[in-house]
Design a protein around this nucleic acid. Structure first.
Lengths: 139, 139
DNA sequence: TACAATTTTGCAATGACGTTGCAAATATTA
DNA sequence: TAATATTTGCAACGTCATTGCAAAATTGTA
């Protein structure tokens, strides 16, 4: 399967393993961001919890995925589009979390706006999360 | 001590207890937002972990404090200024997290800007967190 | 002020979550 | 194909958060 996924791993100097192929594949077919638990559930062959933690960590370090901050206490991950290099994320888009289905979606085209901070604060990076209803859940 | 704090509890229909007085007092004298662990450490009389959890939850439900989303996996709480009513937060200001001292500060005067979402998304609430250096840590 | 009713607290037990060390399994390189 | 390097899975561990329940504290009322 999934020649392009193999290529992606190769390009980023990672060994090609079943777990990694499977997890990356999940991300490519997921409707939104995935939490550790989602992956544990959805993985067809069962992958060890620890392997999932380590794989996510590796993917993040290599710039394949990024974390999404959340108001509750859970970390979600989503694919980085295009431009993320190793150790250097360009994750400056707005994230949307549906209050109904709790799907988490990257709004790649909506950039986080600049804000003017009070004197003394030196901004480096901004995150913005919008909560509401997604298209599927309005009705 | 702290007649105004007692008043605040009374006004919100909460029993006045030592734990609550002490925790509220911590919030009023804290430089920024507090995590559960901070409270556990700073409380002069030792308060049971469980009590702290329950107190924070109660305060949040009553609109005295609000949670601040974070990129890592920790929840912090900060006082709501003025206008929060029971179950109805007006927590629409930007939060700042210092990368150095990891102090978390409510920028009450910086409102989260509106963003235009793609069709189909119905926004209800927005959160924005800016990371960088605070005044004390620049030098 | 004292008593009954309600609320809150602290302890114990439990479970979810995340990390680490290490040996076995797998992938890569030559 | 063999040697080397990497990754995986298991076991053990520690932290964090939640729940039930009895004891303690607070509140409302007489």
């Amino acid at each position: 399967m999934s020649e392009p996924i193999r290529e992606l791993l190769k390009k980023n100097h990672m060994s090609i393993t079943d777990s990694r192929l499977q997890i990356l594949d999940l991300f490519y077919h997921a409707p939104g961001a995935l939490a550790h638990a989602d992956i544990e559930k959805k993985a067809s062959d069962k992958i060890d919890r620890v392997t999932i933690y380590r794989t996510l960590q590796t993917f993040e370090e290599k710039g394949l995925i990024h974390t999404i901050p959340s108001a509750d206490n859970s970390v979600k991950y989503a694919l980085c589009k295009d431009h993320c290099a190793e150790g250097h994320h360009h994750d400056n888009h707005v994230h949307f979390v549906c209050e109904q289905c709790s799907k988490t979606i990257c709004l790649e085209d909506v950039l986080v706006p600049e804000v003017k901070l009070p004197d003394g604060f030196e901004p480096h990076q901004s995150n913005m999360v919008v909560n509401g209803l997604c298209n599927d859940c309005r009705s």
